[in-house]
Amino acid sequence: GEWEKESFTRLYPYDIPAHGTVPIRMNFLSDFGEPLEIPARQPLSIDVLLITDLGNNFIETFAPPVPVASVEIETEDIGVAYRDVLILDASDSYDPDGFITEYNWTIYGDDPSPRYLTGRKIRVYLSKEGPFEIDLKVTDDTGMVSRLSQISGYITIPANRNFNPPVCLDTDNDTYYYNKSTPPNLIHACLKPACLKDAKDECVKEENIPIKFEFLEGSGNVTRIEIEPSVNYTNSSGIASTNITNMTGLKGGWGIIRVKCDRLPYLNNYKNVKVINVTS
């Protein structure tokens, strides 16, 4: 049980004790004089023949596993948006002379570093829009490994906004000053922009998404706030804004601006509007 030997040759054969077993490891880059070249896209089986000094011949064939992967996209209704989910399936992978023991997936593009997942069939929620590249590595019961990228190439998934859709709005509640002495055709104050946020609470930087602003109610001395435009579209930073063009009331108070976008939960934006330069 304690017997070990690092290497063997014809001059220095293995001396295996009776009824004993020992592992035999071969390096195809150094144990055969010259490296044995095997095309990556054409994995070959390995035949191992053991000859003993008693004239017994033992032959064993080792075939690498074959990775086969399929990808489906399912759409989930998460209440405020529709989100696409990847279904990675390696069920059709097989091993010609044994069975597969491990399924390892690698996803490139979802994080700064590769994302590693395990399982024969898995459900993947992505935190980016893409595009993505996916690789599958399978390991069989003899330890042989095959990678999909070395046989048929990576699986490429095109970019899709629905992998990480907007799920909420964000805005602020700052105080703004309204100047009653300014002609009403000029912009008096600007509502702070509304921003769409995704499932990771990051701003969605996508253009031309409509954001709606509407005056809901006032309090204190504010009875009405006029807004223009009432609908604006996000810019390249994912931000949309509008302006206070007129207000009814004295000395200021609270005005509630409702911000809405598609199916997302609306925001009631509380604007503390103060009147200055009151002349009448």
Results as ranks from 00 to 15, higher is better:
M26G: 06
D77A: 00
P35D: 08
T9I: 06
P43G: 01
Y82R: 13
I46W: 05
W105K: 00
D84Y: 03
F99Q: 13
P43E: 03
D97G: 08
F99H: 13
V66D: 08
V66C: 10
D77S: 00
L44C: 01
I73Y: 04
N56P: 00
T52I: 05
P13T: 14
P64G: 06
F32G: 03
N56R: 12
L49T: 14
E72I: 09
E74R: 15
P64Y: 07
S70V: 14
W105S: 04
D77R: 00
R83K: 12
A63L: 05
I100M: 06
F58N: 14
E74T: 14
F32N: 10
G98K: 04
I16K: 02
L11Q: 02
A18V: 13
V66K: 09
D92C: 10
I73Q: 09
R10Y: 10
N57F: 15
E72A: 15
A40Y: 06
L88A: 07
F32P: 01
T101V: 12
Y82L: 14
F58S: 15
L88N: 04
A40V: 02
E60Y: 07
Y94S: 08
A40W: 02
T61G: 01
D53A: 12
L54M: 03
S93A: 01
L11N: 01
P35F: 06
Q42W: 06
G79P: 02
R10E: 13
I78P: 01
T75S: 06
P64C: 05
I59V: 10
S7D: 06
D31N: 13
E72G: 13
F58G: 11
A40G: 00
G79E: 00
F62D: 08
I59N: 10
P23Q: 09
T101Q: 05
S70R: 14
L36H: 03
R25D: 00
E60D: 11
V80C: 12
L86R: 03
E72C: 07
E74G: 10
N104I: 09
A40Q: 09
F99M: 08
T101F: 08
H19W: 15
E74V: 14
D89E: 11
E76N: 09
I38L: 05
V48P: 03
V22S: 05
E102C: 06
S45I: 06
G20T: 12
V68S: 01
H19I: 15
I73H: 04
N27E: 14
L49I: 11
T75W: 04
D97M: 09
P67M: 07
P17R: 15
I87L: 14
T9G: 00
L36E: 04
D53C: 12
M26T: 13
N104V: 09
D92I: 11
H19Q: 13
T101Y: 07
P65V: 10
E76A: 07
F8Q: 03
L29I: 10
V71G: 01
A81E: 02
P67R: 04
F58H: 15
F62A: 07
R83Q: 15
D92S: 15
V68P: 02
S70E: 14
E74D: 15
E76K: 08
V48G: 01
R25I: 12
V48D: 03
L11K: 01
Y103K: 02
W105V: 01
A90D: 05
N27I: 11
